[in-house]
Nucleic acid binder design. Structure first.
Lengths: 122, 122
DNA sequence: TTAACTGTATTAGTATTTATAGTACACTTA
DNA sequence: TAAGTGTACTATAAATACTAATACAGTTAA
């Protein structure tokens, strides 16, 4: 599914969160698709199940997955009630990053091209 | 100059870095302008000078300021050799954030409008 | 030269975070 | 029932983050 980089300064559970988030955002993991169980993924990645559990809890609190006791963890449907908050947070971060990019000399045209590039794959 | 929010979960030195970066990016602090001394800023913000020093060191390693022993710390000129790297990093982060925004339902048009909004103030 | 100002380095102590381990419980499914 | 799920809790060790106190070295201006 993915691998952990031991040289990465970021904590393992954060790496797991990031990798899974990427898979979800890029639609590799589809809506309501079942994720590996906590224990399975722990075996795959060769780390402690509690670390996976922590990552799953984080993803759930961020609204990307939902978990059902005894059944498993699944990818959340894209449009949920929490989406508005998430969108606003992302937009805030985007504002800061865009201002920084412009400060560094990136042009508005380059930025708009980037949007087309990222969004074009659908 | 700015204030520290004690309720903010982020460490003080990071808050200092963020605030100063904002001032630099938004051109409140101009090229080669002198920043407050480590000790002065520490008094202003009511924290330990070492915490400011850490923030300054971080800003220096990120290329936003440069420090001269005995003289002070100053805002870096915008275009430096390290800019290419910085730009690439920011573009990478932007790609991820843009993909996330699109996933959350933000349209390409909204994103392009955001660019115009951020960049329009100059 | 001296005094007061700069950044910097070092050391220390405390708090927090991270990762792991073990155990137990409750629910679902075959 | 048995095996597989998520979840909760405690404990521990290690690493990292954070702040603080102090001392050192360079610059500047009186």
């Amino acid at each position: 599914m993915f691998e952990i980089d031991p040289r990465d300064r970021n904590p393992i559970y954060e790496q797991v969160v990031e990798r899974l988030k990427e898979l979800i955002i890029h639609d590799v993991l589809k809506e309501d698709e079942k994720l590996p169980s906590v224990r399975d993924l722990a075996k795959q990645v060769m780390i402690n199940p509690n670390t996976i559990q922590k990552a799953y809890r984080e993803l759930e609190s961020q609204g990307y997955i939902y978990s059902l006791k005894g059944r498993g963890s699944f990818v959340s449907p894209t449009y949920t009630t929490e989406n508005k908050e998430k969108r606003e947070k992302v937009m805030e971060q985007l504002k800061k990053l865009l201002a920084e990019a412009l400060y560094l000399g990136v042009t508005e045209e380059e930025l708009k091209a980037l949007i087309t590039e990222v969004g074009g794959g659908e």
